[in-house]
Simulated assay, not measured.
Amino acid sequence: MPRLHASAGFGALLALLLIIGFGAWRYDGFISEYNILTVLRYNSMFALVGLGMCFVIMTGGIDLSVGSVAALSSVVAAYLSPYGLIPGLLGGLAAGLAAGIINGFIISKMKILPFIATLATMLAASGVALLISNQQSVPASYDTNFMALGQGDFALYAPEWVNGEDAGFLGAVIRIFLGFPIPAWIAVFAYLLGSLILNRTAFGRHVLAVGGGEEASRLMGLPTDRTIFLVYVMSGFLAGMAGVILAAQFGAGQPIEGVGWELFAIASVVVGGTLLTGGKGSVGATLVGTLLLGILFTVLNFENGMGWISLSAYWQSVLRGAFLFVVVILQSRLTRSAATA
Rank of each mutant, 00 (worst) to 15 (best):
W308R: 10
T277F: 06
L276G: 12
R320F: 10
A202M: 11
F203D: 01
V326R: 04
L246M: 15
I186K: 05
L324I: 06
A265W: 00
L292A: 11
F203R: 02
G294K: 06
G281S: 06
D225P: 00
I228K: 11
R218W: 09
G260L: 13
L275K: 11
E214T: 14
I309A: 11
L196W: 15
Q316M: 15
I256A: 14
F203A: 05
G213F: 07
T277M: 12
R226K: 14
T286M: 12
T298M: 09
L193F: 14
E215C: 00
H206T: 06
I256S: 13
G221Q: 07
G251L: 06
T277D: 14
Y191L: 12
A313Q: 14
G194L: 11
I295F: 09
S312P: 07
F229Q: 00
G211P: 05
L311Q: 08
A252I: 02
F297P: 01
Q249R: 15
W185E: 05
T274S: 11
S312A: 04
L238G: 06
N301D: 15
Q316E: 15
T224N: 03
G273M: 07
L293R: 04
G305D: 10
G281L: 01
A239C: 07
P183A: 04
R200Y: 15
L208R: 11
I295T: 13
L287W: 09
S282E: 06
P223D: 06
M234S: 03
A190V: 08
L230I: 12
V207T: 01
A265V: 00
V288K: 06
P223F: 04
A184K: 02
L296D: 05
F250D: 03
Y314N: 14
L287V: 12
V283L: 08
S310I: 01
Y191Q: 05
G212V: 10
V233N: 02
S282A: 08
E214K: 15
I228R: 08
V271S: 03
G260N: 13
T274R: 07
G321K: 03
T290P: 00
I309T: 13
S317E: 14
M220G: 02
A248W: 05
S235Q: 01
A239G: 10
G204S: 07
A239R: 07
G279Q: 09
G204Q: 04
V244T: 08
V299D: 03
A242G: 02
G273F: 05
A184G: 05
G281I: 01
V270E: 05
G213L: 10
V233E: 00
M234C: 11
R200N: 12
M241E: 00
M234I: 14
I186T: 09
L276C: 03
L275Y: 00
L287G: 09
G211T: 05
I295C: 07
S217V: 06
T290E: 01
G211Q: 07
W185T: 04
W261K: 02
Q254F: 11
L300M: 14
L311S: 03
T277V: 13
E214N: 01
V318T: 14
